[in-house]
Amino acid sequence: MIHFVLLISRQGKVRLTKWYSPYTQKERTKVIQELIVYKRYASLYFCMCINQDDNELETLEIIHHYVEILDCYFGSVCELHLIFNFPKAYYILDELLIAGELQESSKKTIASLIVAQDSLVEAAKEQASSISNMIAQATK
Results as ranks from 00 to 15, higher is better:
Glu101Pro: 02
Arg10Ser: 14
Lys125Thr: 07
Phe86Thr: 08
Ile83Thr: 12
Gln11Val: 06
Ser132Gln: 15
Thr17Met: 11
Phe84Cys: 08
Arg10Asn: 10
Ser21Leu: 10
Gly75Arg: 04
Ala124Val: 05
Leu120Ile: 07
Gln25Ile: 12
Gln25Cys: 07
Ile63Gln: 00
Lys107Asn: 05
Lys125Pro: 02
Val31Gln: 13
Lys13Pro: 00
Ala99Gln: 13
Asn51Leu: 10
Glu104Cys: 15
Gln127Gly: 02
Leu113His: 10
Lys39Leu: 06
Ile135Gln: 14
Tyr66Gln: 02
Asp118Met: 09
Ser106Gly: 09
Val115Thr: 12
Leu16Cys: 03
Ile114Gln: 05
Val115Cys: 08
Pro87Lys: 09
Met134His: 12
Thr109Asp: 07
Ser132Met: 12
Tyr91Glu: 09
Ala128Thr: 12
Tyr38Gly: 07
Ala42His: 05
Leu82Arg: 01
Met1Tyr: 03
Leu57Asn: 05
Glu34Asp: 15
Leu35Tyr: 10
Glu126Phe: 04
Ile98Ala: 07
Val5His: 00
Glu34Ala: 13
Glu95Pro: 00
Gln137Cys: 12
Thr139Pro: 00
Ser132Ala: 15
Tyr90Gln: 09
Pro87Asp: 13
Glu101Met: 12
Leu60Met: 08
Cys72Trp: 02
Ile131Asn: 13
Lys108Glu: 15
Asp71Leu: 03
Arg15Tyr: 03
Ala89Thr: 08
Lys13Phe: 09
Tyr45Ala: 04
Trp19Val: 09
Arg15Asn: 05
Leu82Ala: 01
Ala138Asp: 15
Tyr20Asp: 05
Ser105Glu: 09
Ile92Arg: 01
Phe4Thr: 06
Lys30Asp: 14
Cys49Asp: 13
Lys30Leu: 14
Ala128Val: 10
Asp71Phe: 02
Gln117Ile: 01
Gly75Trp: 01
Ser105Ala: 07
Arg40Asn: 04
Arg15Pro: 00
Glu34Met: 10
Ser132Gly: 13
Val5Lys: 01
Ile135Phe: 14
Ser106Pro: 11
Ile83Ala: 07
Val67Lys: 00
Asp54Met: 04
Gln117Asp: 08
Phe4Val: 06
Val121Lys: 10
Ile69Arg: 01
Val31Ser: 10
Gln127Thr: 12
Phe84Trp: 10
Phe74Asn: 01
Gln11Arg: 09
Cys47His: 01
Ala42Met: 05
Tyr38Asn: 10
Glu122Thr: 11
Tyr23Met: 15
Ser76Asp: 05
Tyr90Glu: 08
Ile63Arg: 00
Tyr41Gly: 03
Glu126Pro: 00
Ile62Ala: 01
Asp71Gly: 02
Leu120Arg: 14
Leu102Ala: 03
Asp53Ala: 10
Lys39Phe: 06
Phe84Ala: 06
Leu120Phe: 08
Gly100Trp: 03
Asp53Ile: 09
Cys78Lys: 01
Leu16Glu: 01
Cys49Gly: 14
Tyr41Lys: 06
Asn85Lys: 07
Trp19Met: 10
Ser130Met: 14
Thr109Cys: 08
Glu95Arg: 12
Lys30Gly: 09
Gln127Leu: 15
Trp19Glu: 12
Glu95Phe: 05
His81Gln: 05
Leu70Ala: 02
Tyr20Ala: 04
Tyr38Val: 03
Val77Leu: 03
Glu104Asp: 10
Phe84Pro: 00
Ser112His: 13
Gln11Asp: 12
Lys125Asn: 14
Leu70Arg: 00
Cys78Met: 05
